[in-house]
Simulated scan of single mutants.
Amino acid sequence: MPETENSRKPHDRMAAYLADDLAAVNTLIRSRMASEHAPRIPEVTAHLVEAGGKRLRPMLTLAAAHLCGYQGHFHINLAATVEFIHTATLLHDDVVDESGQRRGRPTANLLWDNKSSVLVGDYLFARSFQLMVETGSLRVLDILSNASATIAEGEVLQLTASQDLATTESIYMQVVRGKTAALFAAATEVGGVIAGAPETQVRALSDFGDALGISFQIVDDLLDFQGDPGAIGKNVGDDFRERKLTMPLIKAIARADAEERAFWVRTIEKGRQQDGDLDHALALLTKHDALGDTSRVARSEAARAKQALAPLPNHPVKEMLLDLADYVVERIS
């Protein structure tokens, strides 16, 4: 059956609608990731930037600016800024997590080394600040610098909480707000700010990004246990093997009896995993409806994202954003 405009995924429709802007963002990214003195910088950056990702975060910035009627060109700077911040965090995350695969491809730290990944990530952070300063907006600088600090804070919190069975859903949500939702919220908020939108609309865009980012991350954590490895670009159960306490595990552990808790202590806290442990973990998640409950939280956040857009004017982009919130959770149906 041929694909129609309405049958395409919302981020694909948005990419088509914003095609000219995205082309300008890509041109700017390529020019700013160049380095006269250190050729490894564009090599490492290109590996991630050209990896075929959806460019979701920069698209959110462009979409927000369009939705608020922006006529200038600084939304291109801000979209590139958001992509550089995101790429820098991915480079650093893969070193911290000792990851060997991202989006179905070898990670930069595997192809080069940890030192290159960390230093190129630092370079991209610096480039992102140059880009946002060029807009001349102190408020934009405030929003994106705060988001950068919050992302780092979330990653450090995850480092200390990930293998501690005392980690609560509240702590998990704090991690998610930091490592994922902060950049989603900043990406949409700065699009409204650069357009000079009314404060109610700027706040609505920020709230939309926050809720969408939380839903997006919870769904990713769910897909780790029930997704298609080809579609998610990693193996099912990677979070369990890496002993990351995501929402499904936290819910199952909270409902565990003494024997089940001993299993979680051995596999997560002490890291003594053996053949069959993933299957047993999945059985416990099913027994306690941890996956179903987590899915309901993700859907609730997606609904909150849609409600947040109420103050924004009717616009084709608004419809795409509403559809995007639905699509994020459709991945788990």
Rank of each mutant, 00 (worst) to 15 (best):
L124P: 10
F184A: 00
V297M: 13
A79G: 12
A258V: 15
V118P: 01
A88Q: 02
R255H: 12
N26A: 11
P2H: 06
G292D: 10
L165W: 00
P229H: 11
Y17T: 03
Q307T: 15
G233I: 11
A108V: 02
R40Q: 15
I171L: 12
L124M: 07
S333L: 08
V118D: 09
A187L: 04
R243W: 01
V297K: 13
K179W: 02
L111Q: 08
F74G: 13
S215Q: 10
Q274M: 12
T150Q: 14
A19V: 03
T168F: 03
G192W: 14
T27K: 14
A182G: 04
I143L: 03
A23S: 12
R57N: 08
N109C: 07
S215P: 10
G227R: 09
D113N: 10
G72D: 06
T286F: 01
A211K: 12
P2I: 06
V140S: 02
N26G: 11
Q71W: 00
W264N: 02
A252L: 04
F74H: 15
G276D: 08
L284C: 02
E301C: 04
I41S: 10
A290R: 03
T286V: 14
A46E: 14
K179P: 00
S35K: 11
L205R: 02
S162P: 03
D12N: 09
L131D: 13
G69K: 02
L124V: 07
D277R: 07
D220N: 09
R255T: 08
D289F: 07
D122I: 03
T107S: 04
W112I: 11
D224I: 05
S99D: 00
S7H: 06
G209P: 09
P42W: 01
T200C: 12
I143D: 08
M14C: 00
N77Q: 12
I143M: 06
V96Y: 00
Q101H: 08
A197T: 01
P313E: 11
L90S: 05
T107R: 09
A34R: 14
L91K: 07
A64F: 07
A147I: 04
I151D: 03
E5A: 05
T200M: 13
N314E: 15
V176K: 03
T200E: 15
S137G: 10
D142V: 00
R255L: 14
E301K: 09
D20W: 05
R243V: 02
S128I: 13
H66R: 15
T168S: 03
G191S: 06
L309W: 10
H75R: 13
V95T: 01
M1P: 09
E43P: 01
